[in-house]
Design a protein around this nucleic acid. Structure first.
Lengths: 334, 334
DNA sequence: TAGACATAGGTAAACGTTTATATTTTTATT
DNA sequence: AATAAAAATATAAACGTTTACCTATGTCTA
């Protein structure tokens, strides 16, 4: 692989001049520029990003940390960051964190080794304290899907509680009074907040959720099926279900139909996240749109801005609101 | 950010010694090793991957080029490469190629700048010649989902034609005689091969496909819906449809049901790819599994092997076979 | 006790750039 | 034609590592 020295030698100029040509810098005559460009072409010269990063002390990579890419939700996240990266002629450096604290730490360490100054991280396993420490060490670190008060200005998150409220309002506007909930058995923040917002809003209208109508299960399709079986077996009446996420909601619908209930004619189902499958299911799923791709773009932009802005004065974190997407799985109660 | 020099100074040794400690090298006494390790800890020292790459002339990143991450198929591809990267303590460097030749070229150039020696590339837009040239320039380049004869040993691909044959055999085993096809309107290799294999195998059993029963549409759900409407409008009879991919197949099923046909009772539908949605649809989709994640792992491994192997003698490309996944959308013809 | 080896550690060059500073060449001015 | 100013180009240091080679200090052997 030819280097700047080779180009300089062949073109009969100093490496400084070649460097100027490469960077479109000033102080180089027209003829020389042409000559050098031609030699670069001839030799197939490509500047070495490592050497550049070393001397300029800035990297051309934008880091992302997600649990895995197989989940379309995280793929969208990465895609959002990539969009911004491309706009700034930067590369995506991706680290997966496998859902455990140790891997999350390893992932971020790898990014630090690469001297990646801007990082968008989705972390659920590290403690608040550890993340605050990391933020101090890495100025360009931005947290997504999580908010920590002291470093709010470096967080981009969704208002899960408001999502629950929106779902409640939607169901109430359709005259549902007896509603069931399916939540995740992993009581991390998101499910708790969604459920809290949901029941609070219902409470404001004087509707209490029957505790027998709240089920907790694995947050996937099968979990949704099992939870729905329990709900049906309980003997309690209900005309709508608010489900923690779309995969579970699809499982719920499938079990309902297997048991002779029509969705939405007999029972309405509302999901959360608006992942790809919700558009493909039958009936198409009414759900709350989680604008993860926009959020990822904003997080990436924020991460880049932090570096350029002198003081951090201008940088601001951001709370996103989920948006109701009315499709076919909810309907007015007859 | 502290450097090796800082550590050396504080620990009172030379940078060579620190380097040896970092790399777990020999020639360093027990006491010194402990002392240096402790100072590294104290100073929060992290080696600079750029400097390392520069001097050792080898990178710790593994490149991937895919059109975009939002498509779960490509996300799985990237995930497969990531699995291998992690096994070798390497980082994923991801470049997206946006479905056009210019971006594909840009994507690979960025990876070359980063001196990424192992690259797994999914390219549909560049010509064979251009790719062969690239393979010469970048020894560690491996092509996935594509085969070019001269560089077969650097390709990992799927036998699409055989996939068509398997689908044909499956449908015939279920006694279907009158079958329709929905293909992609973009006549690149994949759809052509799948259709060819399908009709050849049918031909061997003396079944000819009525050309009025072959539709070409956008390779997404809506395309599947439109194509199916045409098929129904044609007035021709058929008891099964072989669809180019799962998204189209789901569109097809939806249109069939809207028109009063039951799947699979009245009409069987078989898709291709086995993407996530095919498990979530109702009825669950019978399809041909495209083992993209295994393929990606193998491609990544191959790319890594090329470098380590002296001659390229031992390296081999690989042709994968799709596998029939019988779910609920196909049934015997009554 | 002299010499021969290990062993532990240090010195300095190299990797491929960028960039501040120095030098040379060109152009403009009188 | 001489000088000043501007433009073009060169020189060399620096970025943070690794590593080949050299040196010093013991330790063992005869």
């Amino acid at each position: 692989m030819s280097t700047i020295k080779d180009v300089a030698r062949v073109a009969g100029v100093s490496i400084a001049t070649v460097s100027r040509v490469v960077n479109n810098g000033p102080k180089v005559g027209k003829k020389t520029r042409v000559k050098v460009t031609q030699v670069m072409e001839e030799l197939g010269y490509t500047p070495n990003a490592n050497a550049r990063a070393l001397v300029t002390q800035k990297s051309t990579t934008l880091g992302v940390i997600v649990p895995a890419l197989t989940d379309p939700f995280f793929a969208s996240l990465a895609n959002g960051v990539d969009t911004i990266a491309r706009q700034h002629n930067m590369q995506l450096l991706l680290s997966t964190s496998q859902q455990d604290a140790e891997s999350e730490r390893a992932a971020i360490n790898l990014l630090i080794q690469q001297r990646c100054h801007s990082i968008v991280m989705h972390s659920k396993k590290l403690t608040d304290d550890e993340l605050v420490d990391l933020c101090e060490k890495i100025p360009g670190l931005v947290l997504i899907d999580r908010v920590i008060d002291v470093i709010k200005h470096k967080c981009v998150w969704l208002d899960n509680e408001e999502g629950g409220k929106i779902a409640a309002r939607h169901l109430m506007s359709l005259k549902h009074q007896q509603v069931a909930c399916i939540s995740s058995k992993y009581q991390i923040e998101d499910p708790t907040l969604r459920l809290r917002g949901f029941s609070q809003e219902l409470g404001r209208a004087g509707i209490e959720i029957n505790s027998q109508l709240i089920e907790y299960a694995e947050p996937n399709q099968q979990g949704g099926e099992i939870a729905t079986q329990h709900l049906l077996a309980s003997g309690q009446k209900f005309s709508a279900i608010f489900v923690y996420n779309d995969a579970m909601a699809i499982g719920a619908i499938s079990t309902l139909e297997d048991n002779g209930y029509r969705v939405p004619a007999d029972i309405s189902v509302i999901g959360f996240d608006d992942v790809l499958i919700s558009r493909y299911s039958r009936p198409k799923l009414t759900t709350l749109h989680y604008p993860i791709e926009s959020m990822a773009q904003r997080a990436a932009q924020l991460s880049l801005d932090i570096k350029s802005k002198a003081g951090e004065s201008a940088v601001e974190g951001y709370k996103y609101l989920p948006r109701l997407v009315k499709r076919e799985s909810t309907n007015i109660k007859y």
